[in-house]
Write a protein that binds this DNA or RNA. Structure first.
Lengths: 353, 353
DNA sequence: CTGTTAGCGCATTCAA
DNA sequence: TTGAATGCGCTAACAG
């Protein structure tokens, strides 16, 4: 049985109130008593029980974090930012993952709320039509959405200009002479970010008088074969795309691999762009042209905003952080106009793993 | 003010004991009362407060997780495994990160323990000489080490055969004719895994009668310039290495990029191997030859072992999960640079491009 | 400056 | 089958 405040009091020969006082510095204590208490604490290896404290003070100093996945470097980096900011503010983090499954969101949130978290940082599948958020607004702790963008006022969020950034990116592709530009997206159902980025693509294409191609919605976590199949519809066109704008970096890297399997060279035969700016995008060859988003800072900002909202020091509004274009070797001039890329023969004989 | 058990009792016209009973099914209740209670719960939107419950039952159904970083895909995947297993077992997770800083470990653990976690899953910097673990053994919740391997008996751990796997990997390099094989490691101080993997390298080299090269300890999170500088000592040798065994995949990918900057081709001029088997290693070009470790499963196994230890259903021992070699394009025959080594049979497919 | 006391929300005796 | 009472570990009045 671990020591309680009573044990300390008894050993120090004082009341539990005095122990509590030296613990929290909530009132003046005579140096002599304080010394005795500290000694007793040391001897007993006493550490205050946060449960008892929280029950009394109604302050758990805990925030809940719900993300779709930890495996995605973007969320991992954000989580690190949240963690760092939380630690600095003396908060602990309770974690939950939805695995991109919106049906899992409610129960995950329930678990967090039962723990009496003082606030939430969440990335949900669909922020626009979420009853979840409605119920949180009604009776829940304050929350800050991370990555979700939403029109509705009175909701706090930390995000980037997804639509504008992709529009800019696609604009660059167009500037490089690309006309047949495809957009490759993760499943929309699981990500409103993906949808917003697609909007940016559409805006840029129509704005330039180009015809958007049908979006390729690929299964993010599927295997190679499924991926190739999803992409085949695009590559099999009589005039295949010369550029692939992808809704995130992981997808872009997968697309680059798929193009390679199809015998196409990046960027000579096709350009590829990503979104997010994950670190590894710089290391690969060719390096990935993308939009860098301040993932870590966004996590930090989300937690700081949350804390500010709690103390009425900030309104519930969307805070957009700056992104920037990151050049990369995956981006090049469109191949000679009018010519479809030569359908190089698959050199599968060379590869076998 | 959110509803408490008293509010429910009052509304249902009964005692809080009865409400508690329907909540936990801990005793028989008349159907009529139960219906009234459930109705009251619904009307009030009541959800039990986990704090009060935990304080009473001394069961928090919470485990603490301490990892060096979330950004490393290996830990991210493990964390996902831990989370999944925890959720299935009805446990919540409190998170802490040490940022590879061993001085941060104690306070992080302190925060977790104050929360009365029922167990811990941790990856520490140095499991062999950790006072931290000693103090946990003395008075702390049960814990399971993840990735840390240690000789000491009576400590629970989930790991892989780091030393053996690298020895095997280096053996393959040797089998491909490589003799000047370098080992590139993250800073040893921050990772005993790195040390163990280096041991495997040494064992394989000396076992084959080859002379180990001085280890290149690189700053894992440094910039490109620092990285190139750290590697310069190796590349500047009169007879530079023809193969680079790296202590993890991220490092290996960074080394591939550095070699490229130095004007060397992988694998024609130099082979590179990693360790961990992160997913992205398959997508890059050339694909990364490495040791696949079951990161997600290890996280799951760690939590399951923890729960089993709690209930005395398992001893505190090390559980090693199986790894396996993953072939990749980063691995090739040693360049025929004027050497005539003993004729060894390559067991891998020849690669050319 | 210090001690006594009253809960925080809940599960759980013990009676009825 | 139900209710009253106790206490988990702690902080915060309120006295002294």
């Amino acid at each position: 049985m671990t020591a309680t405040i009573h044990d300390v009091a008894q050993r120090a020969g004082c009341s539990i109130a005095s122990v509590s006082r030296v613990l929290n510095g909530s009132a003046a204590i005579s140096p002599a008593l304080e010394a005795r208490v500290r000694e007793a604490i040391r001897e007993l290896g006493y550490r205050p029980n946060a449960l008892g404290r929280s029950l009394k003070t109604k302050s758990t100093r805990t925030v809940g974090v719900l993300v779709p996945s930890f495996t995605n470097p973007v969320f991992a980096a954000s989580l690190a930012g949240v963690e760092q900011a939380a630690r600095m503010a003396g908060y602990d983090i309770i974690l939950a993952a939805s695995d991109y499954d919106r049906d899992r969101e409610p129960e995950a949130l329930g678990a967090l709320m039962a723990r009496e978290v003082e606030g939430l940082v969440l990335t949900v599948a669909d922020a626009e039509h979420s009853m979840l958020l409605d119920s949180l607004d009604r009776d829940g702790p304050p929350y800050v959405l991370l990555y979700n963008e939403l029109a509705r006022e009175g909701r706090a969020a930390v995000s980037v200009d997804n639509e504008g950034a992709v529009a800019d990116l696609v604009g660059r592709l167009i500037g490089l002479g690309h006309e047949r530009i495809a957009f490759v997206a993760g499943r929309f159902r699981a990500s409103d970010r993906s949808r917003l980025r697609h909007q940016g693509y559409l805006a840029a294409m129509t704005g330039a008088g180009l015809e958007p191609l049908p979006v390729a919605e690929v299964e993010f976590l599927g295997d190679e074969a499924a991926f190739d199949r999803d992409l085949a519809a695009l590559l099999g066109r009589t005039a295949p795309p010369t550029a692939f704008a992808c809704s995130n970096d992981l997808l872009a890297i997968a697309v680059m691999a798929a193009l390679r399997r199809a015998g196409l060279r990046v960027p000579e035969d096709a350009s590829v762009t990503g979104f997010d700016g994950i670190a590894i995008g710089r290391q690969i060859h060719p390096s990935l042209a993308t939009v860098e988003t301040p993932t870590h800072a966004m996590g930090r900002a989300a937690l700081e905003l949350l804390l500010d909202i709690r103390t009425n020091r900030a309104p519930r509004a969307t805070r957009r952080l700056a992104h920037r274009f990151r050049p990369g070797g995956s981006l090049a001039q469109a191949p000679a106009a009018g010519l479809a890329p030569s359908p190089t023969l698959p050199d599968e004989t060379e590869r076998k793993t």
